[in-house]
């Protein structure tokens, strides 16, 4: 990774500390030597208030600029591997290096409650979402219960 890019990530970290949305967390992971790896971030995205995702906190790893839920999340736009399919994360669909971690995480938070049916990533969640909204919502609520925000 270029030093320019690393500089940006380090700036990113400062920005995040200065101003981050409520309930989110994001910190660079430490490598085996305990040294910070600014490319790999450990993040948490809370469900939006007043949605079925409210009260949950979902952990994901961001390896700039890709996000991956750990463990994989039941959601129409999350691949079975946990990788999240967010258009702002996709270079061809508009990812600019200037997108900040805050924007990525806020984007993921919005995606939680507003799945993009144009871009399905897992059959199971997408199928339930399409076929039986009530069952889908119930399932999400139980996931929220298993991943409570502190």
């Amino acid at each position: 990774m270029s030093s320019l890019c690393m500089n940006r990530l380090s700036e990113e970290r400062k920005q995040w500390r200065r101003d981050h949305p409520f309930g989110f967390f994001a910190k660079p992971m430490r490598g085996s030597q305990g040294v910070m790896d600014l490319k790999r971030w450990e993040c948490g995205v809370p469900g939006k208030e007043k949605t079925i995702w409210d009260g949950g906190l979902f952990k994901l790893e961001v390896i700039f600029p890709d996000g991956k839920f750990t463990p994989p999340l039941f959601h129409p736009n999350v691949y079975p591997s946990g990788t999240v399919c967010l258009s702002i994360l996709n270079e061809e669909e508009g990812w600019k290096p200037a997108i900040t971690i805050k924007e990525i995480l806020l984007g993921i938070q919005s995606l939680l409650d507003e799945p993009n049916p144009e871009s399905p990533a897992q059959a199971d969640a997408f199928n339930l979402f399409k076929k039986d909204k009530a069952a889908y919502e119930k399932k999400i609520k139980s996931i929220v219960k298993d991943n409570p925000a502190p």
Binding site: D124, L128, K131
Partner: peptide, 9 residues
């Protein structure tokens, strides 16, 4: 069957 994709998985 509901959740058939999960059964197939």
């Amino acid at each position: 069957t509901p959740r058939l994709p999960y059964v197939l998985d």
